[in-house]
Amino acid sequence: MLTENHATATPPSPVTMAAPLYPIELTVNGTRHQFEIETWVTLLDLLRERMLLTGSKKGCDHGQCGACTVLSNGRRINACLALAVSQNGHEITTIEGLADGNQLHPLQQAFIDHDALQCGYCTPGQICSAVGLMREGEAHTTAGVRELMSGNVCRCGAYPQIVQAVSQVMGIAPAAQPEAPVRPTVVGTVLS
């Protein structure tokens, strides 16, 4: 039995009013786009549902799995935690923008060569994350790669191959490095 109450005398609450639209401009994979969007649209949902760029994946929508990792002005970010309006004017690179035509990005090719994927769902996030990692210049050993790729969950468990693929492209010799963290880990620090 439905108990809808239509007999309310009060005006509709603000939460039920149409959300206002804001103009934003994004450069996505080298092409400039303009949108009129509500503030509650995340960058991830904008990419997936409005631009049909479904290479960026939704695995948790809470910044806990890394499947949505894209590059914003070259930095790796969780697209699910970024409201699209907050990215106004940014250059966004998604997995669809990494290859040069038919020529794969070296990381894409290394992931295939090392079989650093199984179901493939975390893979775009892993690769975008690795591109960001390389730019940060913090990882110098396989242990460093492991640590700094740990924001990207792979449920199939392709981690050893992911480390091999990323290390190869970064020119890090496999297993020749000591098992030490790259730098002291301070809980709560955010890399800039």
């Binding site: 290479g55 669809e96 290859a99 794969l104 060569d113 994927l117 893979t123």
Partner: peptide, 21 residues
Amino acid sequence: VSRVDGRAKVTGAARYAAEHP
């Protein structure tokens, strides 16, 4: 042999259940 679906997966071309327009 390398995974035949490798290219589709590393380029984001592989479409999963929620991704078909």
